[in-house]
Design a protein around this nucleic acid. Sequence first.
DNA 1: GCCGACTTTCCGTCAGGCGGAAACCCGGGT
DNA 2: ACCCGGGTTTCCGCCTGACGGAAAGTCGGC
Lengths: 253, 253
Amino acid sequence: MGKGRADARGSRTASARLLAVLDAFDAEHRALTLSALARRAGLPVSTAHRLVGDLLAWGGLERGDDGLLRVGLHLWEVAALAPRTIGLREAAAPSMGDLYEATHENVQLAVRDGLEVVFVERIAGRHAVPVLTRVGLRFPMSATGVGLVLLAFAPREVQEEALSSPLERFTERTVVDPRQLRSMLADVRRRGIAVSDRQVTMDALSVAAPVRGPDGDVVAALSVVVQADGAEPRTLAPAVRTAAAAISRSLAR
Amino acid sequence: MGKGRADARGSRTASARLLAVLDAFDAEHRALTLSALARRAGLPVSTAHRLVGDLLAWGGLERGDDGLLRVGLHLWEVAALAPRTIGLREAAAPSMGDLYEATHENVQLAVRDGLEVVFVERIAGRHAVPVLTRVGLRFPMSATGVGLVLLAFAPREVQEEALSSPLERFTERTVVDPRQLRSMLADVRRRGIAVSDRQVTMDALSVAAPVRGPDGDVVAALSVVVQADGAEPRTLAPAVRTAAAAISRSLAR
DNA sequence: GCCGACTTTCCGTCAGGCGGAAACCCGGGT
DNA sequence: ACCCGGGTTTCCGCCTGACGGAAAGTCGGC
């Protein structure tokens, strides 16, 4: 019988099939052949072929000179209308620029989706520490600086759920004990700033602050990532906090 | 040919219907009620209702607290995998940052799609001239700086087609005579730089240079937009050209 | 020239998409 | 209180056009 994922294949709606085609792409698979795509989507090739044809015509996919299929520009255009993307970016860009100019380090903006954070914008200097986050990527909330902020200010249910599932470990310093995490979160709420010290990679440290929407609830988190050794988070905190506040202010209008 | 418009409603494939739902959103309509959406997509409400349901479940749309429908984060995630988005952005970010720091003006990156340019990235300072372009927006090629660059280096057929259709006018200085445009393009090719002087709005001027892919063909255009009066394009040109060259270089590896 | 992997076309079957209609919900006007 | 208009959601019978197996076509490697 089939391998794991291709099971319920007879019983999917037409839309689900089309969306499965899109889901076949991810950060490791940005270019696919038709049959690889069909395989990953759990669809017969002939079906995939038709759906891909529709998507190509629409601009949701494009075929490169090498014949491989990739995500298309038109899809990106409509996706760029997502409220927590464009709107936030526009509002955040100037302050992020300021912060970058002041620090010359990676400046990142992220929002929460479910139990994960999604990075929506990033300004990366050429001299900044290389980090493994990238725009469009998901991360668990428990490790990163932005994650701590977004978790600390998330609704109760979300916090409970996040704390009840086992915490993913990245480094020896990653916090995996729920009790310890809980007290860190309280600390974040009190100080309005989060520090993730080597919790995601051993050479990086990030300082994050909440960005608030018009009605005061936290809608995003801003962070700066710096080299871990020798860095002094205390000096960064005020800059990050004020930049985040500036973004909040421009969201308010 | 045409990207989907709302047309003959009976004769559409299932996928086309789903994609029509997405196309109902644009820069002026980022949040829609179900019935408005149905109207714009040219679909019966009940059909739209089902499709929207599928998209909500998948994360392609989300329903705000106000009950309105908006483009969802998950759609944006997969769209972020588009090659001419993420890849370019990553490569371009540092140089764009440098250019911004040197000028403190709007720095923009655009690619060509069909007969139009699409802006894929922009760094906007708080002191920069307000411009009407925005990330994710389309523009005709004939007016903007980036458009001139992308048109000048586009394949013959594209140039012919662009020159044969009537050119859109934005200001009194917009070039609408094909002969004149043709000579401007030759000039752009010769000098490796394009200047759009008040051709899109009367207060702005942009200077653009080509970004080349690994095999030497022009894949994008980089531009700086400045206040039109008093600006001296000649001083900007070298900076833009070198930044664009730096991006080309980092694409080559 | 043969073989394997991928792409594209064809077509008979029948699941499930489609959309009209009716029920439901909600706020605002009188 | 009542109705009315606009939106949303549910229901269900008809019939279309999606589905996918199979075969033909294409390309490249050995």
